[in-house]
Design a binder for these strands. Structure first.
Length: 462
RNA sequence: GUCGCCUUCGUCUAUCGGUUAGGACCCCAGGUUUUCAUCCUGGUAAGAGGAGUUCGAUUCUCCUAGGCGAUGCCA
């Protein structure tokens, strides 16, 4: 069994494309068949190599590997020419030289009359030898097919016109190439967005004219933005790689995408293996769904919390580089990640939080500092410095005991000591349990930061 | 305009004629926590509208409305 993903390289791999690719990939993996990547670049005006690379990068990051391809339609022009020629010879297609202007006025006229805008067959019997090539669509009857997602779909041939299968420059168009390729590549199930539903009856007529067996069709509902409109840039990031940049784990995005339009009871979290095992086109929803960033964020945190440490660090590496954080010479990264994984929604956040362990800072968050570093905190911080500078065994338990000792000595509660200490350590006030954090930050840096806090208090005193 | 597809909490969804319409995200309240977060408990919130079929419709049929898509020498 074979399925395919066939994007046209006119931009990056976007969320909708990724979801389509995922479903087609899942189907192939579930059927233990093959998954093919085909680049539909027949529109040379809009296609470019940068887009091909972006799509390949996106697929790679998501882990959607393919067994064949990428095939490029521009490499197969000879094959399409043969098919067009065959159709021409069998009188199943004909040349048409209607001008764009004529076509446009024809459309306007029909629309004004309240009819469907379609080609009127002007050149059908002219026996021309140049121009665009049009397929002779059957005039009567209707095309009925059973979509694996949508169920039975029926369209009258009257609604269909003689579509152009080759441009006047001889290059083939989408509806022809897709049929030829899906046939030649032995695709058993065409899984694509439901914006192609309207093309399917035309393609079916082409299959029949060519005497080819029909594949199964599964049309996936679109993904809309939160406002119900088609997903676009104004809804935020639509490029898959932008999600990598924003600190999402590929498996979290995949999990989010698979649940958008598909479900398995009440289950929300699926490993890749579970998706493959449980996925079924019959459980795919018919209605379009809208993209919800909050849920993605939640899933991302779920994955950050439970991800395999090695994998997590691999994914984190890109962000460490982009934020210029050098972890060599600092505390063990696995210990730092362990502290941070429960409080990071994204890898970007995690990398930011990591700075306090690997980089020095010379100022505190102003708002937090004005709250915490009051003159009353001065003796507490001094006491911490005194005790810690004498501490030999720099461990979280010892560090914790000293905080308690200081509480007792100063006659204050844990909060009075812990809060300024935490701010001194982190600079922002956001940190995990202070003893563990202090241990990881190290004795030298901890003392330096406490002294910095003292400087801050001295400065506001004056 | 015409044709096609779609319609359960704000969002993602469960339900395969009989349920107090369930779960998840978000939000709110409470608890745990030295902060934040995690975690735990609870709460708010839905069948587009109208006809039928049926003992009984969210579920089946039809109509209307709304949304999306197509109507390209784009894919």
């Amino acid at each position: 069994m074979k399925s395919r993903f066939a994007p046209s390289p006119t931009g990056y791999l976007h969320i909708g494309g990724a979801r389509t690719a995922l479903f087609a990939w899942l189907w192939a993996r579930k059927e233990q068949g093959k998954f093919i990547l085909r680049i539909e670049d027949t529109d040379r005006e809009r296609s470019n190599q940068a887009s091909v690379d972006a799509i390949l990068d996106g697929m790679k990051w998501l882990g959607l590997d393919y067994d064949e391809g990428p095939y490029y339609q521009t490499d197969r022009f000879d094959r399409y020419k043969i098919v067009v020629q065959q159709l021409l010879e069998e009188d199943k297609a004909y040349y048409c030289e209607c001008s764009q202007e004529r076509l446009q006025t024809l459309r306007d006229k029909l629309m004004a009359k309240g009819e469907k805008a379609k080609y009127d067959g002007h050149c059908q019997h002219k026996n021309l030898t140049a121009g665009v090539v049009r397929f002779r669509n059957p005039a009567e009857g209707n095309v009925v097919f059973s979509d694996l997602v949508k169920g039975e779909i029926s369209v009258h041939n009257k609604e269909l016109d003689d579509l152009i299968i080759a441009r006047s420059d001889g290059t083939p168009t989408y509806n022809l190439t897709v049929v030829v390729d899906d046939h030649d590549m032995e695709i058993d199930c065409v899984i694509r967005g439901d914006d192609h539903i309207n093309n399917t009856p035309r393609q079916i007529n082409l299959y029949e004219a060519l005497g080819w067996d029909l594949p199964a069709f599964a049309h996936l509902p679109m993904i809309l933005g939160g406002d119900g409109a088609r997903l676009s840039k104004r809804h935020g990031a639509v490029s898959v790689m932008a999600y990598r940049d924003a600190g999402f784990l590929p498996e979290a995005l995949l999990n989010y995408l698979v649940r958008l339009g598909w479900s398995h009871g009440d289950q929300e979290v699926f490993s890749i293996d579970e998706m493959i095992r449980l996925f079924d086109l019959k459980d795919v929803n018919k209605a379009p769904g809208s993209f919800n960033q909050d849920k993605l964020l939640w899933l991302n945190q779920e994955y950050i919390k439970t991800a395999d440490m090695t994998h997590l660090i691999e994914q984190l590496d890109w962000h460490l580089n982009s934020q210029a954080i050098d972890v060599s010479g600092g505390p063990d990264i696995t210990k730092v990640v362990d502290v941070l994984r429960e409080r990071s929604k994204t890898l970007v956040e995690m990398a930011q939080s990591m700075k306090m362990f690997y980089q020095d800072f010379d100022r505190f968050d102003e708002k937090a500092a004005s709250n915490q570093f009051k003159p009353s905190a001065e003796p507490i911080i001094k006491a911490l410095i005194d005790h810690y500078s004498q501490l030999e065994d720099w461990s979280s338990t010892e560090i914790h005991d000293i905080v308690k000792t200081v509480c007792d000595e100063q006659g204050v509660g844990f909060g009075k000591v812990g809060q300024p200490f935490r701010l001194a350590l982190s600079g922002t006030g956001n940190a995990g349990s202070i003893d563990v954090v202090a241990e990881l930050v190290g004795k030298e840096r901890t003392l330096a930061r406490l002294k910095l806090a003292l400087d801050y208090i001295a400065q506001i005193d004056n």
